[in-house]
Every structure is written in structure tokens, then in C-alpha cells.
């Protein structure tokens, strides 16, 4: 959920810019190094960014009538790591603000933190832990994507509660915001998990060399997955 332009009051929008800044700087540094090693990395990162943008501008099928969209950045984090995903998230959020009027300029810092940093970091951690523990790859991807989506909304609730604690205090405000978002978001997070899992399945079946080249899955795991699907 994008916090829109003008919603965060003065100390908070600057704070979230400052919090997001180090991640972006590390991400840019990593991209710079990657591009110097392999020139082909830049166009591939760009198409991944465009993919995240298009995916998040499509409406997810949802059964409760509310319209929402997947965040999509979880996939980027699993593929390239969380700091690079943060830079992609920043670019995508600027374009979303300017092309689609989702989000805004002053709230960019807060949105980058919730959607570009917190969500992808959760996805990345779960994916790493899951693959290391030898869990089922598809189940890991499902959990990673669904929890990344939820983490985004939890962080958004924290941001709103910090900015508007009201008289109920931070915890009271947080539970109010989280309750209202959780009701609308939990089903959508599950759908997003399922969708990203299907995307992963298509990649494994049709173009597994992407995953092996990025050192995400070994060839033996892919062979096992392909045999299981066949």
C-alpha cells in the first residue's frame, strides 16, 4: 500500500528518507560493481525493474471485491539480493508516483522503506533460510512472497502509527492501522504468494538457466524439480 503524497507530516517523511538512504547507497555501489564485472547486468536489472512495475500495476484477482496489486519486489530480492532490490524499488516507486499517481514524492522515503527494503529483505531471508534448510523450493517461494507482502503492510502500519499516534499511543494506533490493513491484505498476500510461486514454476520449467546463472539453484535441484513436475 503506497502512502500517498502529503500524508506523512514533517519530521517523519524526512526520517524515512534518511532511513532508506544507506540501503540505496549500498545498492548503487553493488550495481556499479556488478556492471563493471558484467556489462549485461544493467539491461537485465532494468527489465526486472520494469517487470516489477508492470506486475504491480496489474490488478490481482481478488474475491472480496477490493482492488489491490501485488508488490512484486520479493522476486527481485530473491534474484538479486535486497540492496539491489531497494534501488529497483526506488525507481519503480518514482515511476508509479509520476505515471499512475500511486504514492508521492515526499512519502517516497517511507514507501521505499516499506516496499523496497522491508518486504524484499523478508523475502530474501526466508528464501535463504528455506533453501539452506532444504525445504521444498516452491513452498519456500510461496512463504517468502506472502510474508514479504505482509511485512510491507506491517511496516506501513508502523510508519502511520509513528506519525499519527493519536491519544491512544503508538501501540494503540499501530493495532488500529494494522487491523484495517490486515483485514484487506491477508487474503491478497496469500494470492501474491501463489502467483509468485507459479512464476517461479514457469521459470524452472522453461528457462532454468536464469536461476543457475544467478547461483540461486544448483542444476541438480532444478533437475529434481523438473522431474517432480513432469
Amino acid at each position: 500500500m503506497h502512502i500517498m503524497e502529503g500524508f506523512l507530516p514533517s519530521p517523519w517523511w524526512q526520517v524515512w528518507f534518511l532511513v532508506s538512504l544507506p540501503f540505496i547507497i549500498i545498492g548503487l555501489y553493488q550495481i556499479n560493481k556488478l556492471v563493471q564485472e558484467k556489462r549485461e547486468a544493467l539491461p537485465l536489472l532494468a527489465v526486472a525493474g520494469a517487470f516489477v512495475f508492470v506486475l504491480s500495476s496489474l490488478k490481482l484477482p481478488s474475491f472480496n471485491g477490493s482492488c489491490s496489486h501485488p508488490t512484486g519486489t520479493g522476486l527481485g530480492a530473491v534474484l538479486f539480493g535486497p540492496c539491489i532490490a531497494a534501488v529497483l524499488g526506488l525507481i519503480v516507486l518514482v515511476f508509479q508516483a509520476v505515471f499512475l499517481a500511486h504514492g508521492g514524492i515526499t512519502t517516497l522515503g517511507a514507501n521505499v522503506f516499506s516496499m523496497g527494503i522491508a518486504g524484499p529483505a523478508v523475502a530474501y531471508l526466508i528464501y535463504k533460510v528455506g533453501t539452506r534448510a532444504g525445504a521444498n523450493t516452491y513452498a519456500t517461494v510461496f512463504v517468502a512472497a506472502a510474508l514479504a507482502d505482509l511485512a510491507t503492510y506491517v511496516v506501513t502500519s508502523v510508519q502511520l502509527a509513528l506519525a499519527f499516534p493519536g491519544t491512544a499511543g503508538f501501540l494503540g494506533a499501530f493495532s488500529a492501522f494494522a487491523a484495517i490493513f490486515a483485514v484487506t491484505q491477508v487474503p491478497l498476500a496469500i494470492i501474491e504468494g501463489a502467483v509468485i510461486m507459479l512464476v517461479f514454476k514457469y521459470i524452472v520449467q522453461l528457462k532454468p538457466e536464469i536461476l543457475t546463472r544467478l547461483n540461486l539453484l544448483s542444476e541438480s535441484t532444478i533437475k529434481k524439480l523438473q522431474e517432480a513436475a513432469a
Binding site: 496489474l58 502467483v195 510461486m197 512464476v199 521459470i203
Partner: peptide
């Protein structure tokens, strides 16, 4: 939708 996203990717 999953098929669409996968094909798109």
C-alpha cells in the same frame, strides 16, 4: 494471473 506473470517475466 500466475501464467501471465510467468510468461511476462
Amino acid at each position: 494471473f500466475g501464467m501471465l506473470s510467468g510468461a511476462l517475466f
